[in-house]
């Protein structure tokens, strides 16, 4: 039998099934490219959640009130949870947790560049909820309908929880924006620093995005980078106005014909420099992750030793 021909038939059937909104489950036949692109996307999404705990975790011990501290702890714990839902989804594709950890720690796998910017003050800690989680929601809602079942299901859980993240962030910004002149200045300063990195979270413009086409055909991606960015821009401009803050884009304008906001030019050289490891915090984030991994080694070993001892004891009791 012609194996290559068979594969081509399988591939054609798969493509047609997915194009018709069929869902794919882990044990189903899938093209290698589909599996590979999903392992890459889901694991990098998981890594982003895990690394994303650092900028906000930085403010847990210095949150301005007990209320804010409880909220922040719950939020950072959620990010860990999101990372775990996603690792769990990726593992159904045959990749192991160890392989994914190794890819992150060796720098082979990327995570969202937004987490390579520092949280210098409290306004930075809350603006992440508003701008960064807001962008994440815009990105993740269409992923709930992803053709790969486990990824879509993980996204449903994540999106429910992100709604809390975004609202607590916006509320935190509101407190600052409606506060003393110093607090308002702090909120504006945070917006000035986070604006461009936030709208670049949707990735390079469509004219320059290597993965989009195939992923669109496979119903992994539903909207292009620029389409998602537009949705986000239209929402977030209104949100900034309600806060009385100014978006730091002198070219930002409303297009009466299309009914959409139009952004000024984005600095993609800066974006690629951060992706390639030269953002303000890349090295710090990876160093911290590596340290957490190394420091946890004895815990992982002790847990295994304890489990083995318990199992042995149980067996002896059964035998007796």
């Amino acid at each position: 039998m012609d194996v290559h021909h068979e594969d081509k038939d399988m591939r054609a059937r798969f493509d047609a099934y997915v194009a018709d909104e069929g869902k794919v489950e882990p044990k189903d036949w899938m093209p290698d490219g589909y599996r590979k692109t999903l392992v890459r996307q889901i694991s990098q999404h998981a890594h982003s959640e895990i690394i994303g705990m650092q900028p906000e975790g930085n403010w847990i011990s210095r949150a301005p009130s007990l209320r804010r501290k409880m909220i922040l702890i719950a939020k950072v714990q959620d990010e860990a949870g999101h990372g775990l839902y996603l690792y769990s989804a990726a593992e159904t594709l045959g990749v192991t947790r160890d392989e994914m950890d190794e890819a992150l720690l060796s720098g082979k796998a990327k995570y969202s560049s937004i987490f390579n910017y520092p949280t210098l003050n409290w306004a930075d800690a809350v603006i992440i909820g508003w701008l960064v989680d807001g962008a994440a929601i815009t990105n993740q809602i269409p992923l709930c309908r992803c053709s790969f079942g486990p990824y879509g299901r993980a996204m449903v859980r994540v999106c429910k929880e992100e709604a809390f993240h975004q609202r607590q962030g916006y509320e935190g910004m509101m407190v600052l924006a409606k506060g003393t002149p110093e607090q308002k200045a702090m909120a504006q300063d945070a917006l000035n620093r986070w604006w461009w990195p936030a709208i670049k979270m949707f990735g390079p413009p469509d004219s320059d995005s290597p993965h989009s086409d195939q992923n669109t055909l496979w119903k992994i991606k539903r909207f292009s980078n620029d389409e998602l960015r537009q949705k986000y821009l239209d929402m977030v401009v209104k949100q900034a106005n309600a806060l009385g803050l100014t978006i730091p884009d002198p070219d930002l304008k409303f297009d009466e014909d299309t009914g959409h906001w139009v952004s000024g030019p984005m600095d993609w050289d800066e974006f690629w420099a951060v992706v390639k490891g030269n953002g303000p915090c890349n090295r710090q984030r990876m160093k911290h992750r590596q340290k957490a991994h190394d420091d946890g080694l004895w815990v992982r070993e002790a847990a295994v030793a304890f489990a083995e001892k318990q199992a042995k004891r149980n067996n002896q009791q059964k035998a007796a």
Partner: peptide, 19 residues
Amino acid sequence: AGSVHAADSTMAMENARDV
């Protein structure tokens, strides 16, 4: 709901509860 890694079933239960 999903999966968790754990050294044994007791820890799996605790992790499942947290996650």
